[in-house]
């Protein structure tokens, strides 16, 4: 009965929640210039998508969606490892993590 109650919320709420989180992530990516923060905002966006997937999976009674979320987490972990390594290497060369300084790649 207790678990039943836990799932009693309409799915739309989760949709709205994950959309709001995603938009906050987008806003952060646009607003901040620190590459580390941008990376964190991307993580936030990924998580909002994960939340959406889990809600669909749970409401449809299908485990496959959760397996997808698991794989997304795997990929995110790999991405963060490589992304932070890149960041360290950039910082070592330019002594900054400001993305606006990284404007060498142009016409």
């Amino acid at each position: 009965m207790e678990t039943n109650m836990l799932q009693a919320n309409p799915q739309n709420w989760y949709l709205v929640l994950s959309t709001i989180l995603f938009s906050i992530g987008v806003m952060g990516v646009l607003m901040r210039r620190n590459a580390l923060i941008i990376l964190m905002c991307i993580e936030l966006m990924l998580n909002s998508v994960n939340l959406l997937l889990v809600s669909f999976s749970a409401y449809a009674g299908n485990s496959e969606g959760q397996v997808f979320v698991f794989f997304i987490m795997v990929v995110a972990a790999a991405e963060v490892a490589v992304g932070l390594a890149l960041l360290v290497s950039i910082y070592r060369n330019l002594a900054t993590t400001d993305i606006d300084v990284l404007s060498k790649l142009k016409w």
Binding site: V26, V29, L30, R33, I99, D100, L102, S103, K104, L105, K106, W107
Partner: peptide, 17 residues
């Protein structure tokens, strides 16, 4: 058109969104 490529990552992100 290549002049659009300013190298400004922030602008690229804006345009993408």
């Amino acid at each position: 058109i290549r002049l659009v490529q300013t190298g400004n990552t922030g602008l690229y992100l804006f345009l993408m969104v």
